[in-house]
Simulated assay, not measured.
Amino acid sequence: MTKRDWVMKSTVAVLLSTSLLMGGQVGQAQAATTSYSQQTKEVSSIAKSLMGKAYKYKATGPNQFGSAELATYAYKQVGVKIGSTISGLYKTGTKISSMSKVEAGDLVFFSSNGAGSPTFMGIYIGNDQYVYSSEGEGKVVQKNLSDYSKKFLGARRVLEESSDNSSNSSGNPSASATASQVIKNGEKYLGTKYKYGSSSTTTKSFDCSSFTQRVFKEAGITLPRDSRQQSTVGTSVSKKNLQVGDLIFMKASVNSSSDRITHVAIYAGNGKILHTYGSPGVTYSKFDGTNWEKRVVKIKRVI
């Protein structure tokens, strides 16, 4: 083989390898990202496929469903973890007040008199149709949304169009990159004042759960509004398996006899947590060996 032939062969090999590598990376990125429109279509399709299944209070499927549990099940099938109660789901995601702005995949809520707290709910599937598990009819049914205008309380959008690019914001679709993005999102709010009951629509103040809800939402992950609701989603993990981005839920004090959750923080790695409380507001705190650690009730992984 001449020197010229060797150079040409080597060059072709390098170009081929590079092409295959880039193609593989593009394929992985495409596989890792499910589009907003595809997710809403899948949720709607799943909801329709459950029509005729029996209603049963608090039943989680796959053959019987309570009102909220139907939505929980449908979203779980597309890899999205949401709450499991009507009251909790009524506070999650983005509020949609007008019936005219409801989109496929949105959760729709109703009460018998159109006021107060919701008593039943369903999944909007488009074309003025929604699916819900009806106690009165004893099964999952499809109805015209417009026929329920007097009972309509509002809707919540769990899937956000901006989440299509959430994996790209860190340049890596992996869970660790998403966790790093969550921490980065939280760091930009360091020093922001603490306010109990702070609105989820503001970034001028936070309470512990509005802070976690905000920084996870900015990374494309939707959480319920308060800490106890947030503790119902995701996968439980032990302290020894803590990873960056895990949510740590705590009780009121080390000596409290009740395990009622009163605080949530984000594990930031290196024995630290990122959270907000009292006078420091959003801050890092040492976790390992402190009262924060001793107050832990549960740890959940939502990434």
Rank of each mutant, 00 (worst) to 15 (best):
I123Q: 05
L274N: 03
C208L: 13
P280L: 09
S167W: 12
S134V: 00
Y73L: 04
Y196Q: 04
T72I: 07
S231E: 00
L247G: 01
D226V: 12
L145K: 05
N172W: 04
S146W: 03
Q213F: 11
C208D: 14
Q243C: 02
R225P: 07
G114I: 11
K184Q: 08
T276C: 06
Q30K: 15
S146H: 04
K193Q: 06
K58C: 10
K41H: 12
K58H: 14
Y194T: 05
K91L: 04
F65G: 10
I125P: 01
G79S: 01
A29M: 13
T283M: 06
N172F: 13
A54D: 14
D147P: 02
Y189A: 03
N241M: 08
E103I: 08
D147M: 01
R214T: 15
A219Q: 06
S84R: 12
K91I: 01
K139E: 05
K53V: 05
G79H: 00
F65I: 06
S117Q: 14
W6G: 09
S176R: 15
T92R: 00
S198P: 03
F109T: 07
S17H: 09
K195G: 04
V14D: 06
N168L: 14
M99R: 02
Y124I: 09
F65Q: 09
V282W: 07
S166M: 15
D259Q: 03
N185I: 05
Q39F: 03
D259K: 04
Q230V: 02
E69N: 10
K139M: 04
G171K: 15
V26Y: 14
L153C: 05
L21G: 07
Q181E: 15
C208E: 10
D5L: 11
A179R: 06
V14E: 10
F152S: 06
K150M: 06
K294I: 05
D259G: 01
K95R: 13
V43A: 02
V80M: 10
K204Q: 14
C208N: 15
D288L: 09
V108F: 11
K143N: 04
K95E: 08
V264D: 05
I86R: 00
S205Y: 09
T92F: 00
K53P: 01
A179D: 04
G154N: 11
K3Q: 12
I96H: 02
V26F: 14
Y90T: 00
L223H: 04
G197K: 13
D5W: 10
G289N: 09
S163H: 11
V80T: 11
S84T: 11
T85C: 00
